[in-house]
Structure formats: structure tokens, C-alpha cells
Design a protein around this nucleic acid. Structure first.
Length: 211
DNA sequence: ATCCCGAGGG
DNA sequence: CCCTCTGGAT
């Protein structure tokens, strides 16, 4: 897709999604980090239901470390992958508490060394908390980038690298959340709402559906 | 490549 | 029933 068309796409996305932001509920960088770890293969809505009680019981790294893995597991039991997540969140809280003075590090390497934190989660934290121009390629962005033709790629990393090349600078900071929200509500996995899509005229997808 | 793994939607 | 949901570790 040529640069002009891509710029047209993002201008259209800006009009459709004027205030891009995460739908995860959080009151601190640490809470956002935990929420994003919990969000793997789960809906934001389900995560918010869990964290409402979890953060009330343990709002910070000290609290989650003291709460313990067993209690964390009970709070997140209705999320998928809850066992792994409980173990990771507890261990992560301990590391943040003891090695980072309870603060979330603004450093990709440090973030990715945390249990349950990979490149995607690190990119979300860097973008959402520290306002760095990163793009976390999750299931939504991977689908939207490939389907629309904005940034095709066989792996999440390939799509990320391509997005970083082709997204105009003025749209880079908010591209992550705009693409996420577009994928969640319009360019959905199963039955995309092409009839109301802001990208209808610049999207290359050959199977545009009516409703 | 495989495992983890609950809940909601179509 | 099958698919999807802001993946990461082995």
C-alpha cells in the first residue's frame, strides 16, 4: 500500500476514533502492567471485573506480593490461563517490589525480563504509561494490519517493524490504540462491519461484507 | 509447535 | 458446537 493511501487510512481512523485510549481500568503504572499481563487471550471487560476486586485488596506491588499466589489465583479464576497468570503476577510483583523499588521500569529490556511480560506487553506499557511511540501487535492489530493491507506480515514482529516504517509520525503515538479499537469494534475477526468502516475506501480486503 | 484455559458470542 | 479474546514460556 502506497504512503498516500496509508496516510488517508490514519486520517480516517483519527476522525472515527478521536480519543484513543486503553479500556483497561487502572490507577497507576503498576496496575496497568498487571492488567495487561492478565489480558492475554482474555477480554478487557473480563479483566476489569477481576482487577476491580484484586486492586481493592492489593493496589500495589507490596500488596500483591503479600496477598500471595493462591489468593491472586482466586481473584482471577474466571480468566483464561489463570494458573500461569497468578504465578506470573505474584512473581512479577516481587521483582518490581524488591528490584525496582515498587516502580515500573521505563526500559524495554527490564520489562521483557519480567515473568509474563513479552514484547507485546512491554510495548503496551511503554506506549500507554510512558507515551513512547511503540506499537504492540496483538491479535487485533495483526488482523487489521494484514486484512486492510496497511502493514502485511507473517509474524507479529514483522507487522510491528512494517508499521513502524509506514505509519506517519503524526499518527505513531496513537496508532496502537486506534488500531486496537478499530479491530475490536469494527474490523472484527468473524464478521467485520465493513458497511460502517472508516477504512472502507482504502482497505484492500477482497471480501468486504455488508453487515 | 505446543501448552495454558475461562467466558462470551454466533 | 466452534471461534475469539490487547500472549508468553518451553
Amino acid at each position: 500500500m502506497d504512503p498516500k493511501t496509508i496516510a488517508t487510512c490514519f486520517a480516517a481512523l483519527r476522525a472515527a476514533i478521536p480519543e484513543p485510549r486503553t479500556e483497561l481500568h487502572y490507577a497507576s503504572p503498576f496496575q496497568l502492567l498487571v492488567a495487561v499481563v492478565l489480558s492475554a487471550q482474555s477480554t478487557d471487560k473480563a479483566v476489569n471485573l477481576c482487577t476491580a476486586r484484586l486492586f481493592a485488596a492489593a493496589p500495589d506491588a507490596q500488596g500483591l506480593w503479600d496477598l500471595g499466589e493462591e489468593n491472586i489465583r482466586e481473584h482471577i479464576r474466571h480468566l483464561g490461563l489463570f494458573n500461569t497468570k497468578a504465578r506470573n503476577v505474584h512473581a512479577l510483583a516481587g521483582i518490581i517490589l524488591h528490584q525496582y523499588q515498587g516502580e515500573v521500569p521505563r526500559d524495554r529490556q527490564a520489562l521483557e525480563s519480567l515473568p509474563g511480560v513479552g514484547r507485546k506487553t512491554a510495548n503496551v506499557v511503554l506506549n500507554t504509561v510512558f507515551a513512547e511511540p511503540t506499537i504492540a501487535v496483538d491479535t487485533h492489530i495483526f488482523r487489521v494490519a494484514n486484512r486492510t493491507g496497511i502493514a502485511p506480515g507473517k509474524t507479529p514482529r514483522a507487522v510491528e517493524d512494517r508499521l513502524m516504517q509506514v505509519v506517519p509520525r503524526e499518527f505513531l503515538l496513537d496508532a496502537h490504540h486506534r488500531l486496537i479499537l478499530h479491530g475490536r469494534y469494527t474490523c472484527t475477526a468473524r464478521k467485520p462491519r465493513c458497511n460502517v468502516c472508516a477504512l472502507h475506501d482504502c482497505c484492500i480486503w477482497p471480501n468486504k461484507q455488508l453487515g
